[in-house]
Amino acid sequence: MAEQRMDEDRILATDVTYRYPDAERNAVDQVSMRVKRGEFLAILGHNGSGKSTLAKLFNALYVPESGTVLMCGMDTRDDELVFEIRQNAGMVFQNPDNQIVATIVEEDVAFGLENNGVPPAEIRVRIDEALKIVNMSEYARKAPHMLSGGQKQRVAIAGVLAMKPKVIVLDESTAMLDPSGRAEVMNTVHRLNRDEGISIVIITHYMSEAATADYVIVMDDGKIRLTGTPRKVFSDVETVRSLGLDVPPMTGLAHDLRHAGIDIRPDVLTVEEMVEEVCRLS
């Protein structure tokens, strides 16, 4: 069955262009990219670069003006497929307080399932499973407003998980969290990616989060400017900075040392790698 093939495309965007009504330029301009089964992609770019617009094209919140987006093989322009597309591509947004609708955690997780007419017995099973995966089982009967930001985002992820998606898109879902809340969410999505084979797309301003992805896309002015493994993309320090982004601190340090004539690897990402390089060179 096609399901089992590792190279199966989950998202396939071909020459996609989108422009907001009355806007002077394209928010997304001739973008082509793909996310395969089990891949972890990070999309970077300064505000207004088109990255969130691109994410909303993945699950038919927006429909391309020209070009096509295939989500798990389904064309997002086909109205008939919208529900199935959104079931396959779950989305988690930035503000934890704007995406929880119920007054009890497990009812919130059930919201999408109830709307889709899933039988009650099946709903029970899926809620328990989803909350277990995000480590929130003990909060099933708690009120969402008593939870921390990181916990709320994990509940939002559970709500998406309960729909059994093949792809989860997180649009700056860690931006409003503190460092430990951010770590909770990132650990959770990495686990879903690794253990459940769910493809993950994160949109983030945190270079340290992007550094953990399989590959990275850097957007600017609606176009893809850089693409590759985090190691490859970040080692191009000048270009990344010219696009209004940071590089991870250790990559920046390696870059400065190279400028001063030290033959250090340009693609150092972590503190551990920097230590290894210093040991190797001295």
Partner: peptide, 26 residues
């Protein structure tokens, strides 16, 4: 790892200078 790094270094500029010294010696 046995490197002699002065205490109380927390700024990028400072560690850069220290590493340059260590690595140039290397």
């Amino acid at each position: 790892r046995g490197y002699e790094i002065p205490e109380r270094i927390y700024r990028m500029e400072d560690i850069r200078e220290i590493l340059l010294k260590i690595l140039k010696k290397g």
